[in-house]
């Protein structure tokens, strides 16, 4: 099984360790991981900001890079959501590309979904002792149906105790360029999220998308919380 790993631009630039953790998990599940060297961005920033042409160019590039693989997996709900649910809109007037994009979309998976439902990963290599709370990122939850999968994986880590926060499905306020254009509103939403995280009493907030991760961590630290760790699910599951 040849799995094309799309690292995503944010993991590439900000947290490369998450990329290596994801590869470790995929290989632990028996996948042969292939990392196209020319990959960059799925086109989501342009698509969500109205730059359709820019998004089409990057989507076309990504499809060509990954369509030879059996699957495309990425450690992000929003990037895989982009590929699986929005590429069809980008190529609505281009039948040959639409067919290729839809074929790839059908084989595109968010990391934890893939680990649980395709690889059926039994043993999780990482170890962690403490209480965690899980933030459901918007695209992962509402576009990719990621809800039970990360929790099922966490349940396979004996030292992990999951304390659900209230409003775990509410947006953290990231929203891509929204987080800068409407920084004050984004901060307010992130602050609400941080309040719920604090109230959960967890040692770490775990999540599956880099945007939320930077937003939540950024607000936690500004609030003066240096203790609560912010971890991508792949890091937690893979250990070091």
């Amino acid at each position: 099984m040849r799995v094309g790993f799309f690292v995503t631009c944010l993991v590439d630039l900000m947290r490369p360790a998450i990329g290596f953790a994801a590869i470790k998990l995929l290989e632990a599940g028996g996948a042969e991981v292939f990392v196209p060297a020319t990959q960059t961005c799925c086109g989501q920033p342009g698509y969500n900001s109205g730059d359709r042409d820019g998004a089409i160019a990057l989507a076309t590039k990504l499809v060509a890079e990954f369509e030879a693989c059996d699957y495309l997996v990425a450690p992000s709900g929003s990037c895989t959501g982009m590929i699986k649910t929005h590429y069809a809109d980008l190529f609505r007037d281009d039948a040959p590309m639409l067919a290729r994009a839809e074929a790839l979309g059908a084989r595109t998976f968010e990391l934890t979904d893939f680990l649980v439902n395709v690889l059926k990963l039994d043993a999780v290599p990482g170890t962690f002792a403490g209480t965690v709370t899980y933030h459901d990122s918007c695209a992962g939850l509402r576009e990719m149906g990621v809800k039970a999968q990360p929790r099922a994986l966490l349940a396979r880590m004996p030292g992990v105790r999951l304390n659900e926060m209230t409003e775990c499905e509410t947006c953290c306020g990231f929203g891509g360029t929204f987080s800068i254009k409407y920084g004050e509103i984004a901060t307010r939403l992130a602050d609400d999220k941080c309040g719920h995280i604090a109230a959960s009493g967890a040692d770490a907030v775990v999540l599956g998308d880099l945007g939320c991760m930077l937003n939540i961590e950024g607000r936690l630290r500004r609030r003066g919380d240096r203790r609560t760790r912010v971890l991508h699910i792949a890091e937690l599951l893979a250990g070091d």
């Binding site: 630039l13 900000m14 490369p16 800068i180 920084g183 004050e184 961590e217 607000r219």
Partner: peptide, 13 residues
Amino acid sequence: RGWTDGRDMPAPA
């Protein structure tokens, strides 16, 4: 500034 007025930006690795 839109970001850092209310939040820190975690630095890249």
